[in-house]
Design a protein around this nucleic acid. Sequence first.
DNA 1: GAGTAAAGTAAAAGGTCTTTACAATTTGCA
DNA 2: TGCAAATTGTAAAGACCTTTTACTTTACTC
Lengths: 404, 404
Amino acid sequence: MPEPRGSNNRTVRNANRALLLRLLATGGPASRATLARQVGLTRMSITYIVQEMLAEGLLTESAAPTSPAPQGRGGVRLALPEARVTALGLYLSRDAVHGTVADIATGPLYVQRIPLDPDEDSAGYSRKILTLVADLSDRDRALRAERGLPADGRPSGLGVAALGPLDIREGRILTPPNFHRISDVPVRALLERATDLPIRIDNDMNAAALAEMLYGGARGLRDFVYLGVTNGVGAGVVSDGRLYEGGAGFAGEVGHMSIDYQGPPCKCGNNGCLELYASLPFVFQRYSGRLPEATAEAFATLVARAGAGELEASHVLDGLFQSLSVALVNLANVLDPDAVFLGHEGALAGNLLVGRLERAVNSRMLQSATKHLPIRISAFLDQAPVRGATALVFDRIFQGVWSP
Amino acid sequence: MPEPRGSNNRTVRNANRALLLRLLATGGPASRATLARQVGLTRMSITYIVQEMLAEGLLTESAAPTSPAPQGRGGVRLALPEARVTALGLYLSRDAVHGTVADIATGPLYVQRIPLDPDEDSAGYSRKILTLVADLSDRDRALRAERGLPADGRPSGLGVAALGPLDIREGRILTPPNFHRISDVPVRALLERATDLPIRIDNDMNAAALAEMLYGGARGLRDFVYLGVTNGVGAGVVSDGRLYEGGAGFAGEVGHMSIDYQGPPCKCGNNGCLELYASLPFVFQRYSGRLPEATAEAFATLVARAGAGELEASHVLDGLFQSLSVALVNLANVLDPDAVFLGHEGALAGNLLVGRLERAVNSRMLQSATKHLPIRISAFLDQAPVRGATALVFDRIFQGVWSP
DNA sequence: GAGTAAAGTAAAAGGTCTTTACAATTTGCA
DNA sequence: TGCAAATTGTAAAGACCTTTTACTTTACTC
């Protein structure tokens, strides 16, 4: 029995503080009494905890009443001061390094992106990562200063959402397919030398799922799947309110789920992988209409053309629809989510395709008789992985593992 | 935010007691000092908790030294008195109702099974369930009396492992395929009228996975998959030491994962489902050699014949091997387990087949370069679901949700 | 304005773990 | 044999959180 540890008083206060932080960050300002009801503690306990957090500058009180008080005194509004708790985020995609400074409640305060050169190599890639992190640190300092916050404040951590496959334990990007000349980048080691913030690295699908869970359309849901369609296809799975991580942090590689065991060989060693049918490169390869590159804009254009009635575009999207629905039925049968969110560039597929997907999946999945599985577009559209990078940090805070 | 609740003192003691119970039940007797080290509390805290549990008769002290003490005083051996904490278990399979009374530490103390008639209907089925539960209650009382335990003792709960599909919330068996004339049995309602024990109903795959995790070959593992091959194919998934339940408790229906999207239609509405290739009925249907029925014994015979060199038997098992390996690669890519346990009747497939499976899966899965995925036979062979029924109860106790 | 409801707090209490210190037990070695 | 060292279990006091009970303050309604 390696893991389970006993609890004590510190465990308790820590967990309760984290819970309060989460309620205020994702649910907006609230009064002590409201919080007490929401977490199931007494008003008095909340008073004590809030007192402590106020002293740390983690909370502000404003006399303004909270909300339509039906009767009675009306509570004191407790809120998180903006830029007091922040996170730095990096999204390492296949064409750029994206950076964010985000507030725990209000979200991104600063975004920046450094595109990769067509022939970028690992060294240049590393350089760009470090440059961006330095920039983010500076901006974080500036953002605090602008608001008159103490100069010794720092971000709570650095979250890195990286395109897979990656070794989560080591924090190393392995060998992304079609990824220029970049491979085997030891991201964690690199960043640990550059900063002393706590670092969490995960793949872009898991990160995006967390963003959706904490700040997006999955708030309040405890079991759902985020499906990202981009250069490949991947999933982030949330079960019972927690990210499904798998043994080695490799879970969710839906792109290499075989949907035809006699299908064409995939370079992963398997046959008929979903990625051979449903990734963006595949879609564009099937499309002869002129489009510059496999970008988000290009995909949006393709969708628009199909919507306008262009036959070939419709055809190509049909193929995407077919294979995605097979994969989603499989996922629904194995994982039994309460909702599916379509994200990454795939979020630009539009309501038409998503509606068809929802109907197809619901008619073919095993539980069709007893439940309806909603399929929706990510609240952040194709920006979910960017939001996800900082969500990796906030999730740690809400779990009480990292301190705000 | 519906779920998260704040913690208080009661939460703490309760969690720590449950942890101790788990250590002693699954790890055997231990001294206070050993327990303290294992859970990370001080010796003094353990002394207090143990004092409380001794007073309740939940623990016994025996002066005998615990283990090879390299130096020093040598601890007092703390153990769980047999039959003090028990669970009743029902495994509802397609050919019988299996019942167990099990001790939290030593396992089954009594097992009984009532076979179904070939033309059994829902009413007869219900009757047999009730008869068996009454028998189990009596035996539990007798087992306590034999050991001189207080007469007011009762089992901690009743666990039901039922063949799916079933509605976990309602505790109702829906319409098992090929299941004689039985359908839509409201098991929970039935049992709630018959007993006032806490009841937990889950499908047989999840139950078996819990047995494997707590008492079987997966002890110490936090992420693994139990794959049951029987009339259908299903999986129980354990992630981060907890059972993956899915939104509606429907997860793990691997049998209806499509492995060929253009394959033959399945009655679930999908095409090319795994169950059409890898379930026992399929295996026997392909086999012309005379075998009486699709039972565990018949499958063992088939495996023996293949081992003895019979060509047709080998061929048939080959087909099973092929489709299982496709499914397992998919599962490995999506769920990233640290091990797979093969159970239900499939556990009788023998080391030969499992060895081949392990090699095939490890060569084709995405993470093949960075990790090795062991595939093993369930520690309980085809008895895992029976053990699972009571494991459903013990798991609740170890989580601190039910009291022992 | 009285009545009612709700929010926030003060003081004391209750429960659980930890700290510090010590006695008891066992081994190893001089 | 005797003593030091290691380890176990416990006692007493203390630290930390939450709860309980009761009270004050604020706001709405009739």
